[in-house]
Computed example of a mutant assay.
Amino acid sequence: MISAKEQEAIRKLMVFLQEWDGAHKVTRSHILNNFIRSNDGKTEPELEVEFSQGASLFLARLTAWLRMTYMYSTCLNKLLKSIGIFLSAASGCRYIIEFLDIGGVLILLEILGLNHLKEEDKRESVKLLQLIANAGRKYKELICESYGVQSLAKFLATSNSAEAQEDVRVLLDSLGHDNPKYQNQVYKGLIAVLSCTCPRAQQLALQTLVVMQ
């Protein structure tokens, strides 16, 4: 038997989801701002309490909107940050699985190759890929199977953001460790960066290669 308190919590969740579903870009942007401000750093149990055991329903809406709009940079940074709250939630591995089920890795990698998107959006994409890689070897393998090393190496070589390049270096270093199936692929990707025209990218690639030896 559902208590009156639980019924009220479920009602509020349904109202929130209906508001999102019926909202235009500006309203959704405000919703994302509030979500980021209120939920950054929360664990999976805390998010489930916040969403009356229905956090996955909101994550599904975020990922669906990402899939439809990432090429147009519609609130992209806020959207990626919001998804990151789920992917970084302690004990929240199921959120990562749900994100991957909609092709999340491929979307994040494609963002890196879209020239018209902002560097800060691409950096946020790299951060999400790092969260996925941190979840374990099979997730590192998935990134590599999705031609992630090539995409990351190219972004490292062409990015204008020192911060983004450092984030990519950390991710490539992560993909090169505890990932024997694709370690050689990471090595070759870093070697390829050495021939680019960006001195900082060359330095970071060389630094990572030394660590991998």
Rank of each mutant, 00 (worst) to 15 (best):
H116Q: 12
C93G: 06
K12D: 15
C93S: 12
G103R: 06
L206T: 05
D101K: 14
L131E: 11
L142W: 12
K138M: 02
T197N: 13
K5R: 14
L112F: 13
E166H: 13
G22H: 08
G41E: 05
A4V: 09
G176H: 09
V211D: 15
G148E: 11
D40G: 02
S52R: 09
K42L: 13
A205T: 04
L190Y: 04
F35C: 09
A201L: 06
Q165F: 05
V168K: 04
Q183I: 08
V193G: 10
K5S: 09
H116V: 04
G104F: 11
L47S: 02
V149I: 15
S174I: 10
L171S: 11
I111V: 07
T69I: 00
G22W: 07
F58V: 00
N34S: 10
S38E: 00
L79T: 06
L131R: 15
K154N: 10
M68D: 11
V186F: 04
D21H: 08
D21Q: 14
G54W: 12
H30I: 07
E6I: 15
K181E: 05
D173P: 02
S38H: 00
L209A: 01
Q203P: 00
I10E: 09
S88V: 03
E166V: 15
A9L: 05
L172S: 12
A23P: 11
K12S: 14
T158A: 11
F86R: 09
I191F: 09
V186Y: 11
V211A: 15
N39F: 08
V149C: 12
N160W: 03
F51Y: 03
F16S: 12
Y95I: 08
I102V: 14
G113Q: 15
P180H: 05
K188G: 01
D121F: 03
Q18I: 07
G22V: 04
Q130C: 13
L194T: 09
Y72I: 06
A60N: 00
C75S: 14
T208M: 11
A201E: 11
V105A: 03
M68N: 04
E141V: 00
L117M: 08
R11H: 02
E46F: 05
K188E: 07
K140V: 04
M68V: 06
Q213E: 13
D40P: 00
E48K: 11
Y182E: 01
S29E: 05
L129M: 02
V26G: 03
Q165I: 03
F86Y: 10
E145N: 02
A89P: 13
A89D: 08
E119A: 13
T69S: 03
M14E: 12
N179E: 06
Y95F: 14
A192Y: 07
A201Y: 07
L87C: 09
